[in-house]
């Protein structure tokens, strides 16, 4: 027998046989902490053997107290393919896990992590327009998606936050809007739209701000900006359950088949 290269393509099509390796708990070390808003921050994690993730996937995080007590929570990955794992955690008042992740944990400390997980609320970067609707910290997986989007296709972001200071990724959104990669409308559910002098020199200058909850006009305009239903946009909605229900209702009202909406409700 002489060494013969296998026909090209044969090896490349081999299936992975042990798909659960990524679900074992692994040590993740906090490599970087980014303060996003007064009560949310992004933890960039160093995870040995991190396989990368598809935009929209999540991980389970497990914390263990000195007496052995454990708490497990799911967090969306705000990082896209080819990036280190990053989680944006919003503090839930009175919560058990999020206050620790937002207030206490520091660089070089560890958590246990399993994942990436998920194959439904994911965007694999197909050549389709993208409509991303996020409420509060629901923007986290959507950041992974706009980073993974096809630059030739429209990406339309609709965000809902209580007030401007609570908007995650404001700088990144503003930069992408300025670069023409993304169009973004931000609704302020409990605040007035700041005037031009207040916005001058801040990321808010580049963003379209509207007062009040996300309205049907915003949703209709966003869908139009994606090329309408005939453009078959990928539509992703993430946020608190009541927000997601309201958005699916508005999207259906704008003519979209609600079954085509991929939703992620977090309670």
């Amino acid at each position: 027998m002489t060494d013969r290269p296998s026909p090209s393509g044969t090896r490349a099509r081999a299936l992975r046989v042990a798909p659960l390796v990524h679900l074992a708990w692994r040590q993740a070390t906090v490599a970087l902490v980014v303060a996003e808003t007064p009560d949310a921050r992004t933890l960039v994690l160093d995870v040995p053997g991190w396989p990368g993730s598809v935009a929209g996937q999540h991980v389970d995080v497990r914390l263990t107290a000195p007496d052995g007590y454990q708490a497990t929570r799911s967090y969306s990955l705000a990082s896209g393919p080819g990036e280190p794992a990053a989680l944006t955690v919003q503090e839930v008042p009175g919560g058990e896990v999020s206050p620790y992740l937002v207030r206490d944990i520091a660089v070089d400390e560890t958590v246990e992590l399993r994942g990436p997980i998920g194959g439904y609320f994911v965007w694999t970067g197909a050549r389709r327009p993208l409509l991303l609707v996020g409420g509060g910290s629901g923007l986290a997986p959507l950041r992974a998606m706009w980073r993974a989007a096809d630059p030739a296709e429209p990406v339309v972001v609709v965000a809902s936050v209580t007030e401007p200071a609570r908007l995650l990724y404001a700088v990144e959104l503003a930069e992408r809007v300025a670069a023409g990669d993304v169009s973004a409308t931000v609704h302020l559910s409990r605040a007035d739209v700041p005037d031009d002098t207040e916005r001058a020199g801040t990321p808010l200058q580049a963003l379209t701000l509207r007062a009040g909850r996300v309205a049907s006009t915003t949703v209709t305009q966003a869908l139009t900006a994606c090329g309408g239903t005939e453009a078959d946009p990928g539509v992703f909605v993430c946020g608190p359950t009541t927000f997601v229900e309201a958005m699916i209702h508005l999207l259906a009202g704008a003519g979209l088949d609600p079954r085509s909406v991929r939703a992620e409700r977090f309670g």
Binding site: L23, H58, D60, S74, Y120, G267
Partner: peptide
């Protein structure tokens, strides 16, 4: 008041099980 989340939240545990 809605107390539920989407199935994604349990995919890790369910897959392991």
């Amino acid at each position: 008041m809605s107390h539920y989340v989407d199935g994604n939240a349990v995919l890790g545990a369910f897959s392991l099980a």
